[in-house]
Nucleic acid binder design. Structure first.
Length: 258
DNA sequence: TACAGTGTTTATCG
DNA sequence: ACGATAAACACTGT
């Protein structure tokens, strides 16, 4: 699930549990560790208290007075708070045990995982190729960014080195809301389309953050994705589908003409 | 049983 | 250099 709104929710989970010392770190499956061993992750964090966490794109950064834990949730990851008595889930991969409960990094597919940086500088280095967060982009930033790319709009929107935070669902939802065809060349948008797209991006993000996911509402494109024959929630036209490698793109041929 | 699926990286080809 | 595409990672739901 995790796109920007989901990760923002995980950030809140962590933010509610800063300030207490980490009693221990349990690596239940080292398959999610990226460039760090279970031993090093454990020794670096034991006794440390998490500080205010930050989200950048789909990344969650958890500084702990020195070391910084970097989490990426891939397609199936999550971070949740649990009572220690609660049985572990089979996909719980790493657990941070705190005095009153524990934070669990759960991830079925292990497509991404847990990184550790020695300090904030090293954390920044890990994320050096990440573009600006989607929520920080002004209308003119967005215009300048898209104007520099000849590729398709959707491909550009979901390129994390260009803009950080937008995934498959969000990109389709934003294009649909703005009534712009996702296969159009990014740099061909008109000034008024760029204004519309920027407004759509912010409205979709704000509402999604509130829901901690891209909400599958009947009035949203996302609500139509999983139906047998998806139709446009605005006009009822059957949606067009296009597959870009393993990703599906959906749009309304009536609302979003070429 | 077969295949799609909310992410990213790497490789290949044009 | 840039863009398009496919495969790989591992597993579940339909």
């Amino acid at each position: 699930m995790p796109e920007l709104p989901d990760v923002e929710g995980f950030r809140r989970v962590l933010a509610e549990h800063t300030g207490e010392p980490v009693a221990s770190v349990s690596v239940l499956d080292p398959g999610v560790l990226r460039g760090v061993t279970a031993r090093r992750l454990s020794t670096a964090l034991r006794g440390h208290r998490f500080e205010q966490p930050h989200r950048r794109g789909k990344w969650l950064l958890a500084p702990a007075h020195g070391p910084v834990v970097l989490l990426h949730f891939g397609m199936t990851g999550s971070l949740t708070w649990h009572d220690p008595d609660e049985p572990r889930h089979r996909h719980d991969r790493v657990v941070w045990e705190l005095p009153d409960g524990e934070l669990r990094f759960r991830d079925m597919r292990k497509l991404q995982g847990v990184h550790l940086a020695a300090d904030r500088e090293e954390a920044d280095e890990t994320l050096r190729d990440l573009g600006p967060d989607a929520l920080d982009l002004s209308r003119d930033d967005l215009a300048a960014t898209l104007g520099a790319h000849r590729g398709r709009l959707k491909t550009t929107l979901t390129d994390q080195t260009v803009i950080a935070g937008l995934g498959n669902l969000l990109a389709d939802e934003i294009c649909w809301r703005a009534r712009i065809n996702p296969l159009r060349p990014a740099r061909d948008l008109t000034a008024s389309e760029l204004t519309t797209l920027h407004r759509a991006m912010h409205r979709v993000l704000r509402a999604s953050i509130k829901a901690e996911r891209v909400p599958p509402r009947k009035t949203w494109l996302t609500g139509a994705r999983d139906t047998q024959t998806p139709t446009c929630p605005r006009c009822g036209t059957p949606l067009e589908a296009h597959r870009l490698s393993a990703r599906r793109t959906l749009w309304c041929p009536t609302c979003q003409p070429n």
